[in-house]
Amino acid sequence: MNSCPAVTIMLSDAWLIARKDLKLEIRSRVALNQVIPFALLVLVLFAFALDPDRGLLEKATPGLYWIAVLFSGLLAMQRSFAVEAADGVTDALRLSGLTPSGIYLGKTLSVAVQLLVLEVLLGVGVAVLYGTSITGWLLLLATIVVATAAISTAGTLFGVVAAGLRVRETLLPLLLLPVLAPVLIGSTRAFEAALSGTPSEGWPWVGLMSVFAAVYVVAGIFGFGPLMEES
């Protein structure tokens, strides 16, 4: 794989950008102090809305879990581009000579890492707060990995579509959430299959989400350059 120099450069650029973004998140603690509390808040709000005593929460756990991931993930994605908007960093990034596809992959990676942390915490949250008993670990983990890839690849691509515009906070959800609908369906169904003890029904959904992620990785690698040129 590393025989092609362009690929090597792209991957090392991606690694640089991902490390930069994650370091930024660790130091600024916005994800820790705002995004994660927001995600937990969503879980608690669902409990208020659906009356914990009726057993609805446990039944609806997969759907509620992934809605919470999507909503709080949106914040992480918006932030991923908001940090570039200030002080003309976008121009600096363009002048840096990093390959656009590398920047795309790096941003995707850093968003994916943040989403994974968020998902683990939310998983603990639903287990504790909703009393959901966790079964089918392998399928759950595979779903989380693939769905995270799908959400972050599409999210980063649409993130740059909305980046640098005055209306970006309102535009990104409008663009991204319909696009992510199949991922929401797939991940919810896979979780339902895992939690109900019939994992074989869940694996086709994991496959679907892998296809989705692959489509967006390709679209992102080729589309990010033109989009970055004038953001």
Partner: peptide, 17 residues
Amino acid sequence: IVGLLLVPNVFIVRQSV
């Protein structure tokens, strides 16, 4: 770019539902 992604999206949404 959004318009270009319309077609695979339509396809994926249709298939997934």
